[in-house]
């Protein structure tokens, strides 16, 4: 009898812990950097992106129907002699998962004046239980914008471990696939903790 009660209590404690973890993982927004930048409801989050052929930021939807900045774009390509299928082939050739389990994020498309979901997303592993490299790719006005980051293991949700390590890994993947990685980076002024310096790498084939 006493043993039954102890078992029941332990099951209850375990279930409570699991429930708290699930809710924290789900409600939290771990993809926001340590110093998140958010736009207030009604404020246009898209203005800085309008005067370039690339996206500057990745956005998340809010329950108020607005969009808030989350992570900075850190690699781009003019895609003059390539297309999205070529980009996808580089990641798939490295054994990445297409459309891994992830949250839905957007970029601002100035042509249609609309927030749009990625044309392709990929990650080293589908769930990133041990952490993972993770990218989202948008083709806007014929130009490629990539948001690349390294996720921590989910504790309880993924957090950003590094932008710089992800950028470096993606640069190596594309260089290995015969693309040109330009040594000079473009200044996008989209700095974000923990380690994004506001510049983007230009890839070209």
């Amino acid at each position: 009898m006493g043993d039954d009660r102890t078992t029941r209590r332990q099951l209850l404690v375990g279930a409570t812990g699991l429930g708290v973890g699930l809710v924290t993982a789900a409600v939290g927004d771990p993809e926001v950097g340590r110093q998140p930048r958010r736009t207030r409801p009604g404020e246009s989050a898209a203005l800085p992106d309008d005067d370039r052929p690339y996206a500057l930021w990745q956005y998340r939807p809010t329950l108020r129907g607005n969009y808030a900045r989350t992570l900075p774009i850190n690699l781009v390509s003019p895609l003059e002699a390539a297309n999205l299928a070529d980009v996808r082939a580089v990641f798939r050739g490295a054994g990445w998962s297409a459309w891994p389990s992830e949250k839905v994020r957007y970029a601002w498309n100035p042509e249609t004046a609309q927030y749009v979901t990625p044309q392709w997303t990929g990650a080293e592993t589908r769930y990133g239980v041990g952490g993972r490299l993770h990218v989202r790719c948008w083709v806007l006005a014929g130009h490629l914008s990539i948001q690349a980051h390294v996720d921590t293991p989910p504790t309880p949700g993924h957090r950003i471990q590094s932008f710089e390590a992800a950028r470096s890994a993606v640069e190596q993947l594309f260089a290995g696939a015969g693309w040109t990685v330009h040594p000079g980076r473009l200044a996008f002024d989209n700095e974000q903790a923990p380690d994004h310096d506001g510049s983007v790498t230009v890839l070209e084939r």
């Binding site: 293991p153 989910p154 993924h158």
Partner: peptide
């Protein structure tokens, strides 16, 4: 988020 957490 729940699926990712649960898989871990």
């Amino acid at each position: 988020g729940a699926v990712i957490f649960a898989m871990g």
